[in-house]
């Protein structure tokens, strides 16, 4: 089976003023379709940078990265936006819902602005997703009228609305309490099983990490050698 994500010797160097920051120092890995993958590690270890590269929000300084058969660093800004719209769903730590749109409209947004979809099909997709993530009753509410957990459910539904091959979630539970975090991770895993969509998320919460099929540990911009602790009980862990 062809890997969904292939990274070889990924290096990302930022220029922060006059200081050169090596955020990733030669990272290599492969992720297959349908996997529930976690990148974990302390703050500043390069998790978000790596997710940004996988999501084609940014391009590597050197190395090779192929996502869904495409090397994003060969695309221009417009092509990268198009690639993300067709292949990748993104869930943010702060939910990042559009405040002037209702729950329904937030989920519908990518089907209007990113991947235009006929109205009937669009309404069907949105309704089904709202049912799946359990926020159908909040459909006409605005983001400031719902809880943090509900916002993240909306964000998940929005990320899945275009039926992407891959969903990226950067610290998806960082702003949620323990119980809600567990429910959100369970929901993501359930959706992964139902839809076959791959999920890659970054987190430093051990409770969240424990749900992953595959766990990668990042430290100081490098992948750590798998340990018994981070592979135990998770088939396919690396």
């Amino acid at each position: 089976m062809q890997s969904l994500v292939v990274a070889k010797d990924l290096v990302k160097i930022y220029q922060a003023g006059e200081v050169e920051v090596k955020a990733l120092r030669g990272v290599s890995f492969e992720i297959d379709s349908g996997q529930f993958v976690s990148f974990t590690g302390p703050s500043g270890s390069g998790k978000t940078t790596l997710l940004n590269l996988i999501g084609s929000l940014d391009v590597q300084t050197s190395g090779e990265l192929i996502v869904a058969g495409q090397a994003a660093n060969q695309l221009n800004i417009r092509q990268r936006a198009n690639f993300r719209g067709n292949n990748i769903g993104i869930i943010f730590q702060d939910f990042n819902l559009i405040p002037v749109l209702t729950v329904r409209e937030n989920i519908e947004y990518p089907l209007l602005m990113v991947k235009p979809t006929p109205a009937a099909e669009r309404h069907k997709i949105v309704s089904e997703l709202m049912e799946k993530v359990g926020i159908a009753e909040q459909a006409e509410k605005f983001p400031n009228q719902i809880s943090g957990g509900q916002k993240q459910r909306v964000a998940i539904a929005r990320a899945l609305s275009t039926a992407p091959k891959l969903v990226l979630a950067d610290e998806p539970t960082a702003n949620l309490d323990k119980a809600t975090s567990t429910r959100i991770i369970d929901l993501m895993k359930e959706l992964k099983n139902q839809l076959g969509t791959s999920f890659i998320f970054s987190t430093h919460d051990p409770r969240v990490v424990s749900h992953a099929d595959v766990i990668y540990v990042l430290e100081d911009g490098q992948l750590q050698t798998p340990t018994a602790e981070n592979t135990m009980g998770h088939g396919g862990s690396k």
Binding site: A81, R84, G85, N86, I90, N96, I98, Y109, V114
Partner: peptide, 16 residues
């Protein structure tokens, strides 16, 4: 700016 970053991240074309 963050809102623009969000819609750009989820694939909204620059023209939109």
């Amino acid at each position: 700016t963050k809102e623009i970053g969000t819609i750009a991240a989820i694939g909204t074309p620059p023209s939109s």
